[in-house]
């Protein structure tokens, strides 16, 4: 028997206008994710994965339906309330790392803590410990431009967890990395979120990522469809 879901998508719809055409990205999508669950969203480019993450984080608003995270209906909140919710409860990992180039590694790491007003001694130590855990404790004074792609993404993971959010959203976190580095980063995300007991929603187009997931969904015509283990076996092996 499942308890209350941590994330609920309620008949979620989102479309974009492209000239005269309306491009439907999400069409009455419904989904429930449990606390501490690691969910992977699969889909081709343009299938609506990023849009779905933006809606779950409150960055964007649905045309219809709603998003409930930990009992909070995001679609009913104001812009400011959604931002503050995101600030305190959500961590982000992007495909292009999106570290702020003018801040050092340490400053990038501490920024979410500072924004949420929780930059105390303990929190700072915990954040730096995260940096040690991703193996970059010695690079805290470096600027992002000095780091490799894999290192930047490891800093981004640490940053996403620095303020101890309940939910981690990762948008193609390995999409810009080579295969080996991608695997390392994925393992890191997996281990760290599980250790910290966080809920993780990861969007990717790579089926190989699926092995770390508790459940895997494919976005099909704007709706998430759960895939079984059979579905996830590469065609050649079936």
């Amino acid at each position: 028997m499942r308890g209350d879901p941590f994330i609920e998508l309620l008949e979620l719809s989102k479309s974009y206008q492209e000239g005269d055409r309306t491009h439907v990205v999400l069409d009455r999508a419904t989904l429930a994710i449990d606390p501490g669950e690691l969910v992977v969203l699969l889909g081709r480019s343009g299938s609506g994965k990023t849009t779905l993450l933006n809606l779950v984080s409150g960055i964007d608003l649905p045309d219809e339906g709603g998003v409930v995270v930990d009992g909070v209906s995001l679609h009913e909140l104001s812009e400011r309330e959604r931002t503050l919710f995101r600030r305190h409860r959500i961590g982000f990992v992007f495909q292009f790392f999106n570290l702020l180039p003018t801040l050092t590694v340490e400053e990038n790491l501490l920024l979410p803590l500072e924004l949420s007003g929780r930059l105390g001694k303990q929190e700072r130590e915990r954040a730096l410990e995260l940096l040690d855990r991703v193996g970059l404790g010695a690079r805290r004074a470096s600027f992002p431009e000095r780091l490799s792609g894999g290192e930047r993404q490891r800093v981004a993971i640490a940053r996403a967890l620095a303020h101890d959010p309940d939910l981690l959203l990762a948008d193609e976190p390995t999409g810009n990395l080579d295969a080996d580095t991608g695997r390392e980063v994925l393992d890191l995300i997996d281990s760290m979120t599980r250790q910290e007991g966080k809920t993780l929603v990861m969007a990717t187009h790579s089926r190989e990522v699926a092995h770390v997931a508790d459940r895997v969904f494919r976005l099909d015509h704007g709706r998430p469809v759960e895939l079984s283990d059979i579905d996830l076996v590469p065609p050649a092996r079936q």
């Binding site: 984080s57 960055i59 812009e79 400011r80 931002t83 503050l84 995101r86 600030r87 305190h88 959500i90 982000f92 992007f94 999106n98 702020l100 180039p101 920024l111 979410p112 924004l115 949420s116």
Partner: peptide
């Protein structure tokens, strides 16, 4: 724009 988008995603309000 992108940098500021990241900051907004990290929780920076429009006022900030």
């Amino acid at each position: 724009g992108r940098e500021l988008g990241v900051l907004r995603a990290l929780g920076l309000t429009p006022r900030e």
